[in-house]
Design a protein around this nucleic acid. Structure first.
Lengths: 112, 112
DNA sequence: TCCGTTAATAACATACTTGTTATATAACAA
DNA sequence: TTGTTATATAACAAGTATGTTATTAACGGA
């Protein structure tokens, strides 16, 4: 099961998003994933641990290597929360259409 | 402009997601948002600052109050990244269909 | 003007994150 | 067996997050 706290938290780091982007192209080992970053192997290993803990990647053992790949359904589950939020928002927007449009006009002059 | 680091980071906190969920139902003031939480007002104020900094909410001034509401487009922009990732994944999955299916069989026996 | 309400900020404690280096473990190859 | 490769873990430092209390500022009403 994927929990949103650790999933969003994992996605908050640019290195981890880059790792996911790389994995979207296919499996890769730790060293392969570490190579493009100016970062030591232990640091990458820990990012992978975070991603695995968040349910975003899966790993297998292949000799001394531990190839990683994306856990496709995780992304779907994150989307579910965003979808829900977006829909609640849309319903509310429909309902308050005029009010919000009016507020929209005041925008910008009161940003802190 | 919304940056993914701060957006995902903002979403990683359950209090902040609850605040967004509340705001999906319509505007609310700081006190209204703070009420359901066992947390002081300054703590909630800071969560709101994080959400605003991430571009997820907008605020206006209404006398002593500062009603908050969702910034609808922020969610959309987050989706864009997820969509991109999902599509890269899907393309790759199509390509490596057989290989991944085989890997799938080994799943579970090598989780650390 | 004086008071109560709404909200922000400052100062602080605690805990988490993320990187480093050094070291350990496991598999492979010679 | 011995060295090399692939990866994990431990210990530590520095920076960041998140909550608290105390205080301040701004507005609206009596």
């Amino acid at each position: 099961m994927l929990d949103l706290d650790s999933a969003f938290s994992a996605l908050a780091d640019p290195t981890r998003r880059a790792i996911l982007a790389r994995l979207a192209l296919g499996e890769a080992t730790v060293m392969e994933l570490a190579e493009p970053f100016e970062m030591t192997q232990p640091a990458v290993s820990r990012h992978l641990k975070v991603l695995e803990g968040a349910g975003l990647i899966l790993r297998r053992v292949e000799g001394a290597k531990r190839p990683c790949r994306l856990a496709p359904q995780a992304i779907t589950e994150i989307d579910r929360w965003l979808d829900w939020l977006r829909e609640a928002m849309a319903r509310n927007y429909d309902r308050l259409d005029g009010v919000l449009a009016e507020i929209e006009n005041e925008e910008g002059k009161d940003r802190s």
